[in-house]
C-alpha cells in the first residue's frame, strides 16, 4: 500500500504535465505574431540606443546591433564632461519640483471641484479642461514673451512655470476624488478637521494610486520636455538634459554615439521613478478589487 501511495502522486504529476495541449488556432498565432512585432518595435529603439552608445564614431552608421568593437569610451567621455552632470541636475530639479507642484495643486483644485458646491464650479471646470485643447506649440511664444517681461528667461522658474499645474492632472484628480465617498469627508468634518486637513489627511491617502500615476506622467513629461526648455534657456549651464544632449551635434556633424550615451544614462531616473510608483498603482488596483 505504501508503495502505491508514494507512486501515485508522481504518476498524477506526470499525467498532468503530459496532458495533450490544445493546438493553437490561427487567430492565436496571428495575435502572438502581432504582439511579437509590437514588442520588437518597442524594444528596437532602446536596443539601438544602447548599442550605439557602445560604438566608436566610425561605426555609428552601421546598422549592426552588436558593436564590432564595443567600447565604454563614450560613457567615460560623457560622465567626465562637466556639462552633462549639470544638465542632469537641472533636469532632476525641474522634474521633481514640477511633480511635487502638480501632486499638490492638481489634487487641491481637483478635490475642490469635486467635493464643494459653489456657483460657477462647472464653468471653472470647463475652462480648465478647454486648455487641454491648446497645443504647446501655440503657447510657447506667449510664454516666452511673458518670461521676458518678468525676467524669467534662462532660469529654473522660467523652465518650470508652464508645467507647475496641468489641466490633465486636475481632471485626473477630480475624477479620482469622485470615487471617495462623501461619508469619509463628512466623518472627518464631524471629527473636527478643517477642510485643508481633510484634503490632506483623509482624501489624499485614498487616491494614492491616482497620485502615483500623476507623478509618473508629470515626471516623465518634464524629464523629456524639449521645445520649451530649448526656447527659454540661453546659457549652456541652464540646459536640461534633452536640450544639452541635442547640443552634442552641430550643423556639420552629429555625435550620435554621445547623444545615445547621454540618453541611455538619462533613462535611469525615469526607470527609478516608475519602479517606485508602479508599486502604488498595482496595489491600488488590487485594493479596489478587494473592497468590493
Amino acid at each position: 500500500m505504501a508503495a502505491v501511495d508514494t507512486i501515485r502522486p508522481t504518476a498524477n504529476a506526470v499525467l498532468t504535465t503530459q496532458a495533450p495541449k490544445k493546438p493553437a488556432n490561427m487567430g492565436q498565432i496571428i495575435r502572438w505574431l502581432l504582439l511579437f512585432a509590437g514588442g520588437i518595435l518597442m524594444v528596437m529603439p532602446i536596443a539601438y540606443m544602447l548599442s550605439t552608445s557602445l560604438k566608436w564614431p566610425h561605426e555609428v552608421y552601421n546598422v549592426n546591433l552588436i558593436p564590432v568593437e564595443p567600447t565604454i569610451e563614450n560613457y567615460t567621455y560623457v560622465l567626465e564632461d562637466g556639462r552633462f552632470f549639470g544638465w542632469f541636475i537641472n533636469s532632476l530639479i525641474i522634474a521633481i519640483a514640477t511633480t511635487i507642484s502638480n501632486i499638490l495643486f492638481d489634487s487641491l483644485v481637483g478635490y475642490t471641484l469635486c467635493k464643494f458646491r459653489f456657483p460657477g464650479r462647472y464653468i471653472v471646470f470647463i475652462a480648465i479642461l478647454s486648455t487641454l485643447m491648446i497645443p504647446t506649440e501655440m503657447l510657447v511664444i506667449p510664454w516666452y514673451l511673458m518670461s521676458q517681461q518678468f525676467g524669467w528667461l534662462d532660469s529654473y522658474w522660467g523652465i518650470m512655470f508652464p508645467g507647475m499645474m496641468t489641466a490633465f492632472g486636475t481632471f485626473l484628480m477630480k475624477q479620482f476624488f469622485e470615487t471617495v465617498p462623501d461619508d469619509f469627508i463628512e466623518a472627518a468634518r464631524i471629527d473636527g478637521l478643517n477642510e485643508l486637513q481633510i484634503w490632506w489627511t483623509v482624501a489624499m491617502p485614498l487616491v494614492k494610486p491616482a497620485l502615483a500615476a500623476l507623478a509618473i506622467f508629470v515626471f516623465l513629461g518634464n524629464w523629456t520636455a524639449f521645445i520649451w526648455p530649448l526656447i527659454v534657456t540661453n546659457s549652456v549651464e541652464m540646459y536640461t538634459l534633452p536640450v544639452g544632449l541635442s547640443s552634442f551635434g552641430d550643423e556639420a556633424d552629429v555625435a550620435w554615439e554621445l547623444i545615445m550615451t547621454g540618453a541611455a544614462i538619462s533613462t535611469l531616473p525615469t526607470l527609478v521613478v516608475f519602479l517606485i510608483f508602479q508599486r502604488f498603482i498595482i496595489r491600488g488596483v488590487v485594493m479596489a478589487g478587494l473592497k468590493g
Binding site: 465617498p181 461619508d183 463628512e186 468634518r189 491617502p205 485614498l206 494614492k208 485594493m287
Partner: peptide, 20 residues
Amino acid sequence: LEPKHRDIAMVFQNYAIYPH
C-alpha cells in the same frame, strides 16, 4: 455651529473608517 462644535458624533452607513 460647525459640526465639530456641536458635541456630536456620527456613525455612517458605510462606516467611513479610513482604510489607510
